[in-house]
Design a binder for these strands. Sequence first.
DNA 1: TTGTAAGCGTTATCAG
DNA 2: CTGATAACGCTTACAA
Lengths: 342, 342
Amino acid sequence: MALPPSGRRVTIHDVAARAGVSQPTASLVLSNHPRARVAPATRQRVLDAAAELGYRPNVVAKSLASRRSFALGVIVPDVRNPFVADVITGAERVAADAGYAVLLCDQSARDVRQHLDVLRARQIDGVLLDAVGASTLPDEALAGVNVVLIDEPSERWPGIATDAVMAGRLAADHLLELGHTEMAFIGPASDVHAFRMRERGFVVRLREAGIAMRSARLRRAPATVAGGRDAMRLLLATGPRPTAVFCANDLMAIGALKQALTVGLSLPADLSVVGCDDIELARYVTPELTTISVPARELGARAARLLLQLIEQSTQRVSASRLLPVRLVTRGSSGRAPAAVA
Amino acid sequence: MALPPSGRRVTIHDVAARAGVSQPTASLVLSNHPRARVAPATRQRVLDAAAELGYRPNVVAKSLASRRSFALGVIVPDVRNPFVADVITGAERVAADAGYAVLLCDQSARDVRQHLDVLRARQIDGVLLDAVGASTLPDEALAGVNVVLIDEPSERWPGIATDAVMAGRLAADHLLELGHTEMAFIGPASDVHAFRMRERGFVVRLREAGIAMRSARLRRAPATVAGGRDAMRLLLATGPRPTAVFCANDLMAIGALKQALTVGLSLPADLSVVGCDDIELARYVTPELTTISVPARELGARAARLLLQLIEQSTQRVSASRLLPVRLVTRGSSGRAPAAVA
DNA sequence: TTGTAAGCGTTATCAG
DNA sequence: CTGATAACGCTTACAA
């Protein structure tokens, strides 16, 4: 009873016909439903027929019927940020292993709300939000979707985050140990939680050490290399020069570092620069960048796993959302504080 | 006649009921079909009803019925490669503007064949293949899908490519002008067209200038920073040192540059290094990297536009696939050949 | 254990 | 111009 699929793609109907069973039975077998009790012989016939015909299920039809798309949305500020690319890589890997596709949603293409609307229209099973300021979104924007926030702890939504406060503290500790007292911070103006916490950890630790940071030493700029460069320029133009700068991420730190070199400072003799993230690039600038290592891929992978658990309502407890640890990586851009300050 | 959608998402049925028209009529209006002739009054009633109910079309249902997913697959070797991230950004932007979603397919998650199978199962409307060696795929792997190849000219599939041969020639010209005669090339072993052409352009131009490159000066390694570093190490360990190296991409060039510095060479006095791509990072290493600028975003954007044209069978001629131009960007990593060679 | 019947939310093809 | 009626390919009760 070989139904030669004349041009048409082979559907589950064809498989059922060839196996001599009803179409729903074929479905039961092919979607290997957990509580589907089908006779071994029947099952085998169906499987054979499917193999012989080269049957490939149609995910769209499956989605419509089951109201699940087997797809995850990943909303990020910018894929070109290496840290973000790492997060995505970790998430995609986990998603792919679980049979889920990943819809890439970059804020440079659409804003977060629009992305969410689009994803909803596609019956997306879940969404990962990475550093897009979810807390600033109106509640209804996220209503009705499974969401996991990355690096942005929240009361309403589950998430996976890194120990951002600790990142700031480690940076502060490192610079304090090197004898610095004139410190500055460069961070983005945006409302991204992790950046705020890195700043807080840094400032609080300094305060604990009896060092207050003057407001002129707290600069805001876009979280890019250009932003870091500009912020450093302003920093050097205003008042007495700091001897150490902590930046909210490595991109800004690299900008700051380059700017310092450009105006003739020598690093780390005149100025120490510490970044955060430990992107690959941090090792390729000169001097190599001292930074706080943050497990980006792991972050993405865990977030994806958590999201899948949410979606599949697995009974097993969702992994306690401890903060992922960060650690100091000492390289050439930081050193002892200069003896005398201008 | 307000049908309060009790919990259920509002469907086109609800809209039709509220507007007092049949459901297919509502569909005609809401999908603003080109050749659908609906009475203005009716149309308005439908639109009002949709607005009042907050109707959002279900893309999955639409896909099943229309056999189009309104989604594009983008298969890339690695999102973490900054050049690739740029290509993706360009493509996603175009896709989003046209109402298409982008499924990210990274080779680190699955291999190309598997990605293609998955995409087909999702009734993907088209696929962008970036530097994944499409020519090595069996024909049936790409059968039945709209495909646009990026940077890999082919007889069978349309594509957008950059002038890779010219990139190699420009690098050669630049180094020849600087008086170099002892040249080397570092490139990947993989079968990626653009890389091969860059190499060919380089080698051919040298040959035209009467300079033959000895095989020991042609090193193969993975197209990463680590690969470039390793290749440079071997290069320096074997025979007389070259005075100039052209690398198939910036990542390798940066690795090569770092390795040269590590063993105490001074750049560009002892050695000139030229990369290719002009990724942002090229400006952040020290010395800054001389490289061949390749319009990555434009490449992705054009490829996406071409793919959309293919999909929508628009009668307008597909943009003649001229090679996108590349240009030399001279920075600090290249300089005059040293007077005497070891 | 298996088959029947009824959707899932659209689009598409027709009559009226 | 509009409205039945039938797909699209699959899942999920519910019967047999």
